[in-house]
Every structure is written in C-alpha cells, then in structure tokens.
Amino acid sequence: MNTEQNLSKAFTYPAIATGLLLLIPFIAMKFSEDVVWTLSDFILAGIMIFGTGITYTLVTRKSEEMAYRVAVGFALFTGLFLIWSNLAVGLIGSENNEFNSLYFLVIGVGIMGAFIARFKAAGLMLTLLAMAATQAIITVAAFFTGMAEVPESSVYEILAVNGFFITLFVVAAMLFRYAAQEESQTNEEEG
C-alpha cells in the first residue's frame, strides 16, 4: 500500500466517525426541543472530533504498541472532553465566564509538550503530568480570584470538576509510563 493510500485511509476513518457522531445531535434535534444546535455548533464539533481523530491516527500510525495507542487515545479523549465541556457549559460558572478561557492553557501545554517530547511515551508521561499541574494551578487561581462566588459555581463544584480532569490527566500519564516501560523492554530484547 503506498503513502497516498495510507494518508487517504488516515483521513477516511476519522471523517466517517465524525459524520456518525454528528448524526446523534442532528437526529436528537428532530425529536427533542432540548437539543438546539446551530450550524456553527456542528462546524465546531466537527472540527474538534475530526481533529482529535486525525491526531490519533497520525500519532499512532508508526507504533504497534497497544499500551501507547491506548494512552494516546485516552489523553486525546480527555483533552477533547475538557474543551467540549468548557465550551458547552463552562467549568466555572457558565460557558460565557472569561475565566474558562484559561483551560485552553492546559491543551496548549499538551500540544507543546507532545512536540518537545517528540511523541515518545516517556516524554508524554511528563507532558500529561504538566497538564494535570496546569489544571490544578487554574483551580487554585479560581479560588484566589473569587470564582467560587460566581453563580452556578461553588467550592465543591470547582473541586469536583477540576479534580475529575486532573485525575484523567494523571491516569493518562500512568498509561504513558506503562507504555514507556513496555517500549524499553522491547528495545532491551531487540538490543
């Protein structure tokens, strides 16, 4: 199979998955007045889902290690879920609260860290820990800036939501740690 076919295949699966996932809210809009999506909602969701899918495909295409593939998938899903939740309802207050824009820093740390680590499992483990730390710093900043007083937010909600994402990032880091250990064992056996 040549490179052009591989690239075509790399784009086809995420595109099909994106289309199928976007059918869910499209159909739900026909049966429920609670689901109200605009064209821009569909476009943004499509970009996010397709972008996550193509990133997974491109990052994992050279690795046959299942642990690495699972770790990449878990990390990407967590990042997508963080941004999706933040844009949909906001993690602190409503989605219109400007403080929520800080959560894009977590994704920025992940992107920069992934490139610095050259997508190697050991470096990605550190990147995911840095993402968890960034999320924790944002949580602390929320308390120091009085965000627990914002309507629709409380100390408990801020701790619970941010703790949930911090936990997911730490779990992803541990998956990359396991993948790095498997990778080093494989290299020792081959060397």
Rank of each mutant, 00 (worst) to 15 (best):
R118F: 11
F144Y: 10
T139D: 09
A160S: 13
T57D: 10
T134A: 10
V70F: 14
L105P: 09
V171M: 04
V109E: 11
G110A: 06
A75V: 01
M174W: 11
F164A: 00
S63A: 11
V70C: 05
A117N: 06
A160C: 03
V170F: 05
D41A: 01
V59M: 08
Y56V: 03
M125N: 13
T78F: 02
F164L: 07
R69H: 10
N96L: 09
L175H: 05
T55S: 15
G53T: 08
S85N: 13
G163E: 10
L44M: 12
V106K: 00
I107E: 12
L159P: 03
A173L: 00
T145R: 05
F104H: 08
A67E: 11
F50C: 01
G113N: 09
T78A: 14
Y178S: 05
L102Q: 13
S63Y: 11
G73I: 02
Q181N: 14
L58Q: 11
E152H: 15
F74P: 00
V155Y: 10
Y56S: 01
G90D: 12
M131A: 11
E95S: 15
T60I: 05
G146H: 11
V72H: 00
N162E: 13
F119I: 00
F119H: 07
L126C: 08
A130Q: 08
V59H: 10
V106Y: 06
V70M: 10
F74M: 07
G123W: 06
L82G: 03
I43T: 14
T55G: 06
V59R: 01
V140M: 09
L175V: 05
P151S: 06
I158H: 00
V161Q: 01
G93Y: 06
A172K: 02
G113E: 08
A148S: 15
K62W: 11
A160D: 14
A45N: 11
A133S: 11
